[in-house]
Structure formats: C-alpha cells, structure tokens
C-alpha cells in the first residue's frame, strides 16, 4: 500500500510540472497573440487598396491582356503551404495539410513550404519542393515576402507551373481559426455588375498605360497576399496553441483532483488499518 501511495505521489508531481509548462506556454502564446493580431490588422489596408485597384483595372479594360490574367491549361499547380514551426497547437498544422492534400488529389503539383513543420511534412521525397528558402515562419519579414513573390512570379511566367494557390489558416477569432485555400495566380477577375459600374463611373488615367501599371503592381500584390497569409497564420497558430494549452492545463487540473482524491482515500485506508491493528493488538 505504501508503494502505490508513493507511485501516486510521483505521478501527481509529474502532472503538476507538466501543468506548469502548459500554463506558461498558454501565457506566452496569449501575449504574443496580441502583437500578431496588431501586425495582421496593419497589413490589411495595404492588401485591400491593391486588390481594389487591380480589380478596377481589370474591370474597365475588357480587351486588355496581361500575362498574369491569362488562364492557360492547368498542368501543374504550385501550393504555398504556410504552417507553424512547432507543434502543440491542436489540429492547427494538420488541418492545413489535410486541406491541401484534398485539393491536390490527382493533380500534378509542387510545394513551396513555409514553416518548419511544412518542410518536415513535405520533405523526404513526399512532394516536389519548389524552394525551401523559407524555413521559419516566425521571423519572415516583409522583404522575405517580396523575395518569395518574385520567385513564384518568375517561375509562373516561365511556365514552370500554371496556377498558384496559397494554403494558410484564417484567423476568425481567438476561438476559431480555419484552414483556407486561396487562388493567387492567375489573377481572378471579379465579374460582378457592381464592380463594372463603379469602374465605368470613374474614368481613370493610367500612366504609362493600364497594362504596365497592372504588371508592375502584381508582384507587389502577391507579396502583400503572402505577407497577409503569414500574418493570419501566425496569429492563428498562437490562438490555436493558447486554446490547446488552456485545455491541457484544465485537464491536468482535473487529473490532479482525481489523483488527489484517490491518494487521500489510500492514506485514510492506511491510517484506519493501522488503528485497527493497534486496537486489535491492545485487546489481545
């Protein structure tokens, strides 16, 4: 009996120290989450203005052609897969991989992994890797995104693949994050009447020409999309980790309570037994 009490005690100790770690991770994630959300909100207007402008250009000029707008037969797809550098964030990484693999079924594709987990996942010949120059998602800067955008734009124009999709996790709220697939290239032209009318109402002067402006802005726009996707993903990762660690801390607490109860029962049983033994001894 003394042996099982000792085993219980040591188990409780180890759960207690695990709880300390999960609680610390939760705190770290929530404090970094605030900064990540700020960064995400800051990047938002940049993307919106560029997107609107590109749509306007595409809407007014029906006969206008751009290398980025042309749809060609899709032989090969490039996926930009953005996940975290570390695990312990619930289903965060897994959801992204699942979504990407569902979409890629039966297609020929290559992957541009962003984040260490992504490189680990697609490494070892599991998928063709386009570039592994972006191993850590946490310290990717704006200029890295421009570099990445330039890389994929060049390869797209060379015809190494015919469409580019980005798989990332959209940050909806602290409690919900959703793996999302976004088509980056060819540029998707919105064909709504509203867009056409708003574009027709304003006659905009483009200098030097609408084509040139469009082609000059596209790499910028893609860098913006990538950066936005990375910001969203980083915020989502932290939120997912916070939720996962919160649950882990709670579970550890529940386990501790249960173990504590059985420990106390054992201890009480031991005392009762001792008393019975003493009384029996004195009576004899």
């Amino acid at each position: 009996m003394a042996g099982s009490m000792k085993a219980l005690k040591s188990r409780m100790k180890s759960i207690e120290s695990t709880r300390q770690i999960t609680r610390a991770m939760e705190l770290v994630a929530s404090s970094r989450l605030r900064r990540a959300r700020e960064r995400r909100d800051n990047a938002r207007p940049h993307f919106e203005v560029l997107y609107d402008t590109l749509q306007d250009i595409a809407a007014v000029n029906t006969e206008f052609r751009s290398r980025y707008l042309a749809r060609r037969e899709i032989k090969k797809t490039c996926y930009v897969v953005i996940v975290g550098d570390r695990g312990l964030a619930g289903g965060y990484n897994h959801n992204v991989f699942k979504l990407m693999e569902e979409d890629a079924q039966g297609k020929e594709y290559c992957v541009l992994p962003v984040g260490r987990k992504s490189i680990e996942h697609y490494g070892h010949g599991k998928a063709e890797i386009f570039s592994d120059a972006f191993p850590t998602v946490a310290d990717l800067s704006v200029s890295d995104c421009f570099e990445m955008a330039r890389l994929i734009c060049d390869a797209y124009l060379e015809g190494r693949f015919d469409e580019i999709k980005m798989v990332y996790t959209e940050f909806k709220s602290i409690l919900t994050q959703e793996a999302t697939l976004m088509e980056v290239l060819p540029f998707h032209r919105e064909k709504t009447e509203e867009r056409r009318q708003s574009a027709r109402k304003h006659i905009i002067l483009y200098e030097p020409s609408s084509e040139e402006v469009f082609d000059a802005i596209i790499p910028e726009y893609i860098a913006g999309i990538l950066y936005g996707g990375i910001c969203e993903s980083v915020a989502s990762e932290l939120a997912a980790r916070r939720t996962a660690m919160n649950a882990a801390t709670k579970n550890a607490g529940e386990m501790l309570d249960k173990l504590n109860l059985s420990y106390n029962q054992l201890r009480q049983a031991a005392i009762t037994q001792e008393i019975t033994e003493i009384i029996a001894g004195s009576e004899a």
Binding site: T53, I57, H202, I203, I204, L205, Y206, E207, P208, S210, E212, V213, A216, I217
Partner: peptide
C-alpha cells in the same frame, strides 16, 4: 506632383 482637385489617376 499631385495637387488638390487632380483627376482620377493611377500609376505604379
């Protein structure tokens, strides 16, 4: 140079 009351304009 952009001054007030410029026409609708767009460039890179």
């Amino acid at each position: 140079a952009i001054l007030p009351r410029h026409i609708d304009y767009c460039t890179a």
